[in-house]
Design a protein around this nucleic acid. Structure first.
Lengths: 213, 213
DNA sequence: CAATAATTTGACCGTTTGGTAAACATTACA
DNA sequence: TGTAATGTTTACCAAACGGTCAAATTATTG
């Protein structure tokens, strides 16, 4: 009598929804802190408050858990870029994109680190996502930026490297948090630090794109 | 008859120097690619072309290897910042700092990734280094930048976040190389890509600091 | 060359880890 | 309420891994 795995059933029960959520929440904790190899199923199970075999009832392998998690994260991770609007004016669009990305680094540092860990190790699980959907989205937005530059609304610049620089500067505050904290010391608390970073980055990018602040 | 471990001897022999170098080179390969937990002694031994017990003759534990490696890397990693000169003029100093950091991301991506991995997992091995020597160095250079701003040579800005943004934008090309390549596609080769990034970053920071390019 | 010190290796060990088997418990539903 | 499907747990396994040991080999030096 084969046990029907949750992942194989047609309709998901209430328990499945709850438990899978519970597991992914714990998995996010552990994977983002220790990386894929460093994370253990036992540890995730402990954080999730359930037994190891119970975890493996919902996700058959550690990799399946990681894959489910990272695909979900990747999706929401790109929301700010999707919100980037060609119709809006360049200043407010770029400004609010930077701010949203910075807010995400502040509010969802685990997601940022999970992603960083995955890319650092060569992105074996999401290579296709990067080369497909991600590239297409970036291509589309890069075209918007290029049009703005052509119309003289912002300085001429390489739109891809502009996007990279916004990603890197904002995510830095999540991924390198330990270093940032070590350098800045205890003086500034979370909110003050966030505001300082936001102010600086707006100045940097507005100036760099020749947009008067 | 206790075997004198290489690390314990007073003077290092020729063989010790060679082999330790050989091991650290292999370790850099493996640690930077797989992270601390993901790296195995067997794998490092294989890359180094020697047996596992032989490795452990020179470095008693995996952690000792990692520590030796990361301390060496951290030291050379900060050279560009140390070269930052208060006497020089702001434009050329900042410009060449960016370029040096970008060159390091291009020429030493393994070192960058090793460091990123370490910080991502909470920097357990170099916490003291970050809070001590690193912080002091950054404090010193931040003061230089602040003085430049006060003298009206560059726009007023938070010097710490300026340094963070230079770190993050340049190191991004090493740490997130897979993503960068996925988005940019095969069109641009290594050198062209590097020049594009360099041009963009110079424009960004010169403009952001109100320095005319 | 002899003898001592330094280096290298194959075999091995205890622990951790990802994952399984099967019995047991609970839930959903006719 | 009975029964089949779903969910949970205890006990366990094989492989991988960090590290040790003692014997063998090579290098150094008096």
């Amino acid at each position: 009598m084969p046990i029907p795995r949750a992942a194989q059933t047609q309709r998901r029960t209430r328990i499945q929804e709850e438990k899978e959520e519970q597991i992914l929440e714990a998995a996010l904790d552990v994977f983002s802190q220790h990386g894929f190899k460093g994370a253990t199923i036992d540890h995730i199970a402990e954080v999730a408050g359930m037994s190891k075999p119970n975890l493996l009832y919902y996700f058959r392998t550690k990799e399946a858990m990681h894959r489910a998690l990272i695909e979900r994260v990747l999706d929401t991770w790109l929301d700010p870029l999707r919100a980037f609007n060609a119709e809006g004016n360049p200043e407010s669009e770029i400004r609010s994109y930077i701010r949203r990305k910075l807010e995400m680094a502040r509010d969802y540092p685990r997601e940022s680190r999970l992603f960083a860990n995955e890319v650092l190790r060569g992105a074996p699980l999401i290579e296709d996502e990067l080369k497909g959907p991600l590239k297409e989205l970036v291509d589309e937005k890069a075209e918007v930026i290029r049009a703005w530059a052509k119309a003289g609304k912002i300085a001429k610049c390489d739109p891809y490297h502009l996007i990279f620089s916004i990603w890197s500067t904002t995510q830095h505050y999540a991924d390198f948090d330990v270093q940032v904290r070590a350098v800045l010391g205890q003086e500034k608390d979370g909110d003050g630090r966030f505001e300082d970073a936001a102010r600086f980055l707006e100045q940097l990018f507005m100036g760099g794109l020749s947009i008067r602040g």
